[in-house]
Amino acid sequence: MHPAFSVIFLTTLIGAGQGLFLALFTGQFYSTVELVEPQPASFYAVGSALSLALLVGGLAASFFHLGRPERAWRAAAMWRTSWLSREVIVLPAMMGIVFLYGVFHWAGWTQPFIVLGEGTLPIDATFVLGMLGVLVTLALFVSTGMIYASVKFLQEWHSPYTIVNFIFLGTASGFMLAAAYSALLGNHLVGFFGTWAVIATLLGLGTRTASLMRNASIKHRSNLQTAIGIRHRGIVQKSQGFSADSFNTREFFHHQSPETLKLIRVMFMVLVFPLPIALVLLAYALASPTLPILAFVVQYIGLIAERWYFFAEAEHPQNLYYQQIS
């Protein structure tokens, strides 16, 4: 597929936004049960704003993908069948929850209305919003992932890995951002978020590596024989039927050399996984307030490369029909 920057930014930005929200709420949960020290309302409010900004940024990027963005509202219509439609519904829902979550924190509407677990777990509005937010975040990960994973003839995508990678990589980048955010504020949650970020990154490393291995040995079900229905090993296209490029030659192929692909793969495997982990560990060791920020930036750049590769790697069977000009 052709890696379009609109969808690369859409998926990486909202992934980070979703992950950041998960991180914020994880922090809140831990502080509620007093495993970490509590943070001021502004921490959650600004954090939510940051998450929201990422979600809005992702949404904005997605508009560049649309031919007719002014009609984007129509996209919610087919939620019964279309994962894209579902994403279009879930994304604003999440944005709304994140917004409310931040507003409630900021306004201090955090009076518990019920206390569970023998007084250890006070439930306030932000907690409910947070729980809802977690569900919506997961739904959004699944919707986004399923947009790709549900296209069965894009065999590189048609796998649970697509969804778990979106979840782990989004979560990793979100926690990494939370660690950077904490480092910037100078609070004590750097290590907490950093640890979770490393865990998510390691999980992501596992699933992404597994998906790369799976895709490397994938046997494409379509070939020229099935494409034109002629059973002969020596089939070569001589003419695609037109002399210039077209939508079909542009949209479904990256037009890069295998070497470029390999380079991008090595690059993201370094930038997304070992390097941020090393930076976090180093930050831990040096108690550096800036290295976590660098870790996030490095990982996010890596994720752009990862997402580029995600698209480029997927071989669309329609390309079998568009190979040669004569």
Binding site: G241, F242, S243, A244, I325, S326
Partner: peptide
């Protein structure tokens, strides 16, 4: 028609 054959090759 020129979109079908805008240029030619030597076979």
């Amino acid at each position: 028609l020129r979109q079908i054959h805008s240029h030619n090759y030597l076979f």
